[in-house]
Write a protein that binds this DNA or RNA. Structure first.
Lengths: 146, 146
DNA sequence: GGCATATAGTTAGTTAAACAACTAATCAAA
DNA sequence: TTTGATTAGTTGTTTAACTAACTATATGCC
């Protein structure tokens, strides 16, 4: 027996990710308002480099759930903005290690504050136990489709 | 006191909509496997036209949470595929009413079945009360940012 | 060593999203 | 009735996702 609890009229918003789109748009607006000249997608790459500088493009693919061409172009654009630098690995010359510039390190605190602000806006009035349950469900959805 | 329950490490997946992206990719693959030559975004426009044929581009903007240029281009591409036709309104000639073709009507049943299948895949093993709660939280997030 | 295979990354082409600037039609108010 | 504002839709530009086809380096096996 299928456990699909969605009436047809509700199917749409789940597939199209109405909520996460709204969150991303709000965060992008905060970046723009703060004069930060980066996209959410670029931020998502920096986000993982702040956690671990010098990881490879392939590792960025895994971390950000993007394919290789997407990461190639995001790194291209981040390089143009002088936020990262590609450094060919000594051991294995196929691999590019991506390193943050000083300029990118400066962005971390400010953008993380804006991201936390955005989540507080989004989750205003939602009890924390519901937030936790929702996170678990979304993780389960992701795992089911992996 | 903020109710942000997200540790920094979890911030990312909420902003980037990992789960909804996975759902959309899975559905796109099902479309491709079935030989259906449409994108998820095109399907989302057809979805609203199946509910009410002949609505305007502006109404499609509201229904799909997209801006006007996005709908202009989606309708362009759907017209090229001969799935819809723009018909200038008699009363108000600024308005295009978008009408489904016979070909598009045929797609409804098949794509809706695939979409329901996808949601069943995604929600496998998630109890229905948790699904309902999750839907409420995501709706609340959307409303908070609207 | 030499050849097949796998891995890392790039390039090309199509579709789409966001924003700004634009045209055309309608409406409203002097 | 003409002028100014509003509404519906289009066009141009940049960024990004996905697929497929590609290059270059590394690995494993004979």
């Amino acid at each position: 027996m299928p456990n699909n609890q969605f009436k047809k009229g509700e199917l749409y918003s789940f597939v199209t990710g109405k909520a996460s789109t709204a969150i991303a748009r709000r965060l992008q607006k905060k970046f723009n308002a703060a004069g930060l000249n980066i996209t959410i997608e670029q931020w998502s790459v920096l986000y993982h480099l702040w956690k671990e500088d010098g990881i490879s493009q392939q590792e960025l693919c895994n971390a950000t759930f993007r394919d290789k061409p997407s990461i190639t172009r995001l790194v291209d654009n981040l390089e143009k903005l002088q936020l990262v630098k590609r450094v060919a690995s000594e051991n294995d010359r196929r691999i590019n290690r991506i390193h943050l510039t000083k300029q990118a390190l400066k962005l971390q605190e400010q953008t993380m504050t804006l991201a936390e602000e955005t989540l507080n806006d989004a989750l205003d009035g939602v009890p924390s136990n519901q937030i936790n349950l929702c996170k678990e469900v979304l993780q389960r959805v992701y795992d089911n489709l992996k």
